[in-house]
Amino acid sequence: MKKSDWFLAGGILIIAVALLGYQFLANGGDPSESVVVVTVDGEEYGSYPLTEDCSVDIGETNRLVISGGTAVMEWADCPDQICVHHSSVSRNGESIICLPNEVVVSIQGGAEPELDGMVQ
């Protein structure tokens, strides 16, 4: 291996660690205010509070279960089942993605400004 190889590997790792650090710092919101946002094909399907236990049928293709402050994809009809095997998500910014069904489940911070009023 050449010296430049190590610089390349090191450089990419530094970028990755910097991004991880940014994600960690940018998501220090209060977890009790987090919501689970479900999008299908880029359009919002619905959002559910992370604190309330519930089961959500996403269309006829996926089923999401929220319990004990974490969300898991319990069932999906896709062939690869990657989203079902995905570990549970609870921290802001984490997401479960079912690519074949174009379903994205992501945790978003309650600290983010919500649209609670509109001036016309």
């Binding site: 991880l20 994600q23 999008t39 094909d41 880029g42 910014g93 994205v104």
Partner: peptide, 16 residues
């Protein structure tokens, strides 16, 4: 495909 930037969350992990 999913038309969501949330997927970008995986970037650091995928880089490593």
């Amino acid at each position: 495909v999913v038309e969501t930037y949330q997927v970008g969350w995986y970037l650091p992990a995928l880089l490593i």
